[in-house]
Design a protein around this nucleic acid. Structure first.
Lengths: 123, 123
DNA sequence: AGTGGAAATGAAAACGGTTGTCACTTTCTC
DNA sequence: GAGAAAGTGACAACCGTTTTCATTTCCACT
């Protein structure tokens, strides 16, 4: 684990919202951390491949990254402020398995994202 | 409503899956329809603004468009051959609303995609 | 410490989907 | 029909992301 990747991971750990690669790059730079944009992308990719971060696409096409815990879960994302809540969904897991099985599918995976406006933002 | 926009809408109506702007453009062109890529984008934008089509972002950053379907459903996608089955999920709808409500979120939407290997491909 | 090979880095260029520009054409409205 | 408003499309610009490739760092083994 190189200095740069450690820095990226630490930056992600500072806040639990989804953040863009560009934003993380800017923060690291303005904090005096010498790191290249390419490296930030690669670090995020590596972390995502290793299952340490979740990735999702915002409406404008930017990718957003967020450290996540090991256990399987889904996200409830505020569409205004980006705040996210990790939620479990045994009901969804069961439903996905059933539906897939009924159609003869095996090796089932699924992605579920729930969007809404959080209490603070709707106030 | 111009000839081009009508063509875009008709093309969307041919299939109920999410399709990219580029793909729709290619189909229209290869069908002999003289239309510009810019116009396809604008037509899709206009349809989306008018609430006639749904937009979502795929993992690679492309935007995907689909005529607003009469009935809300999700997709079961084979990861080998790409075959998709449209499935309903009342259980998921209920779960999403519950989870969001429990955390004070309003205006709830959600995306659910299930991936697996279909019977043909696993044989 | 020294060495060699694998992995990581980063500046710059390439890439690709999308959007802006602007001169031109089509379509409404009276 | 005439004038206004909206739409069109070739092309260039935009911007987030990925690739390239020469250089640097890390690490295992002597």
């Amino acid at each position: 684990m190189s200095r740069q990747r450690t820095a990226v991971r630490q930056e992600l750990a500072k806040e639990s919202a989804f953040r863009s690669a560009q934003e993380i790059y800017a923060r690291l730079r303005s904090a005096g951390n010498r790191v290249g944009l390419t490296t930030v992308y690669r670090a995020l990719q590596a972390l995502a491949d290793g299952g340490e971060v979740d990735v999702l696409r915002s409406d404008d096409g930017e990718a957003a990254y967020r450290l996540c815990s090991q256990s399987h879960h889904h996200h409830l994302v505020c569409r205004d402020c980006g705040r996210t809540v990790e939620v479990e969904g045994r009901a969804v897991e069961r439903w996905a398995d059933q539906v897939a099985g009924r159609h003869g599918f095996t090796g089932v995976e699924h992605t579920v994202e729930v969007f809404g406006t959080c209490a603070d933002c709707s106030a």
